[in-house]
Deep mutational scan, measured.
Amino acid sequence: GLEHMADEEKLPPGWEKRMSRSSGRVYYFNHITNASQWERPSG
C-alpha cells in the first residue's frame, strides 16, 4: 500500500523500477542517462 509507494519514491532522480520481459526479473532504469542495472541505485 502506501509503504510501497514511499519506498518507490526513495529512488534517485531519473530512476524507475522495471521488469525484464525476458527473465521476469526486476531491474532499475534511469530515463535521464539511459542507464540500467540490476542493483538498486543509491544516492
Rank of each mutant, 00 (worst) to 15 (best):
W15P: 00
M5G: 12
I32F: 12
N34K: 15
P41D: 02
D7A: 10
H31D: 04
R40C: 08
W38A: 05
P12I: 01
D7L: 09
P13G: 05
K10V: 12
V26D: 08
Y27R: 02
A35E: 15
A35S: 13
D7S: 09
E9S: 08
G24Q: 07
K17F: 03
M19F: 15
R18M: 05
W15L: 00
Y28R: 00
R40H: 09
E9Y: 07
W38E: 06
E9A: 08
E8A: 09
S42Y: 10
P13Y: 10
W15K: 00
M5Y: 12
S23A: 09
G43A: 13
R21I: 13
S36N: 04
R40M: 07
K17M: 11
R40W: 09
P41R: 01
H4Q: 11
G1H: 11
W38G: 03
G14Y: 06
L2W: 12
K10D: 15
W15V: 01
P41N: 02
F29E: 04
K10N: 14
R25M: 08
K17S: 05
R21K: 14
R25W: 06
F29I: 05
N30W: 00
G14S: 03
P41S: 01
T33I: 04
K10P: 15
S36H: 11
S22D: 11
F29A: 02
E9V: 07
H31I: 15
S22W: 06
S23H: 09
R25K: 13
Q37V: 03
A6F: 12
E16A: 04
Y28G: 00
G14Q: 03
E8N: 10
Y28Q: 00
E16R: 04
P41K: 01
S42H: 11
I32Q: 08
D7Y: 05
W15M: 01
N30Q: 02
F29V: 06
S42I: 11
R21W: 05
M5T: 12
R40A: 08
R21Q: 12
N30P: 00
E9G: 08
N34V: 03
I32P: 01
S23G: 10
G14R: 01
Y27F: 10
K10M: 12
Y27Q: 02
E8L: 06
R25Q: 08
S23D: 12
L2I: 12
N34Q: 13
H31V: 15
N30R: 00
W15A: 00
G24I: 03
G24C: 15
E3L: 08
T33F: 05
R25G: 04
P41M: 00
E9N: 09
A35L: 14
G24P: 02
S42G: 13
F29K: 03
E16N: 04
L11F: 02
K17T: 06
I32G: 05
N34R: 11
E9R: 07
W15Y: 02
R18H: 05
E39L: 05
G24W: 01
V26M: 07
K17P: 04
E39H: 09
W38M: 06
G43W: 15
G14M: 03
Y28L: 00
Y27A: 01
N34I: 04
P13T: 06
L11Y: 03
Q37R: 04
D7M: 08
E16I: 09
G24F: 03
A35H: 15
Y27G: 01
R21S: 12
P13W: 08
S22G: 11
R25E: 10
P12Q: 02
P13A: 08
L2H: 14
L2R: 12
E16Y: 03
S42E: 11
K17V: 09
E3V: 13
G1L: 13
L11N: 02
R40S: 08
K17H: 03
P13N: 07
R40G: 02
E39G: 07
T33N: 05
R21F: 07
P12M: 02
Q37P: 00
V26N: 05
S36T: 12
G1D: 13
T33H: 04
R40N: 08
W38K: 05
K10T: 11
A6L: 12
I32Y: 09
E16D: 03
E16K: 03
S42W: 10
G24A: 05
F29H: 07
P12L: 03
G43I: 13
P13M: 07
L2Q: 14
Q37L: 04
M19I: 15
Y28K: 00
R40K: 12
R25H: 07
S23M: 08
G43D: 12
